[in-house]
Amino acid sequence: MFLCEIKFFSLTNENGSSDFEKTTRNRFYKNTGILKSDDKFEITLDQRKLKTPKGNLFLVEAEPLALAVATEWHSQKNKIIQSKMHLTTLCNTVQDNPNNLTKLDIVQYIVNYLDTDTILFQGNENDDLMKLQITEWDPVIAWFNERFKVHLKKSVQMDVPPVSEQDKATLSRHLMSYNFAAVNGFMYGVDTLKSVILTLAATERYMSPEKAVLLSRLEEEYQTGHWGRVEWAHDLNQQELQSRLAAVVLFVYFNSQSYKSQQKNKV
């Protein structure tokens, strides 16, 4: 048992450190700033301008988003760890579009994800967990149906028909009203939480990102309550999901129409 533990730790460390070396660079700048050019903002690292992985000039439309990206770069210590810079990653993905996706592709991906949405599939093997799911998840489903005028039903025995075509069309229309950047943000959120409903609950400001992450990890939380919590697995997972989802909420917000119209009123 004891030997087994040592081996496990050293294995993860070997992999971890080699990846770590490959993907990081030393910090090569002292100050970060933003520059306004036309309607968009650029990020500066000392006198250099930040570029995307494909070599394009990094540009964002909203000033607070540019500031948040600059802060991400400014908060790097000796090594630049890009895998943890979720706002920069989202901006890069939108600008470079490495998978050549259209807005319609992404919207269809999100809408089809509803068929396997985490909170629509509730387990009935354990009474306590079942109760927890009913008290925590059902109100969110009810809110979602009300908010988007759809009729989703939860499934307990894996017997429920998938989301109706009509509901999918309704939700597609809603998502298509956002711009390409925001829709990319939704996709990132859905992949983080494994739930369209919880992602939209967070971006619609129905619940905080912390709460949405908690609900997406409901079974894990329940099981750790029984069996104990391991910091380097459960806590790490929770904090990482929270930072991802919070980045999504900010990104969608700063890229949404309502925000821009507010900015224009500014003198």
């Binding site: 948040a68 990102p209 904090q239 930072s243 919070a246 909420v249």
Partner: peptide, 13 residues
């Protein structure tokens, strides 16, 4: 949300 972003990023690191 920004507070959550900063704090969770720091803690996970």
């Amino acid at each position: 949300t920004y507070l959550c972003y900063l704090r969770s990023s720091r803690l996970s690191q």
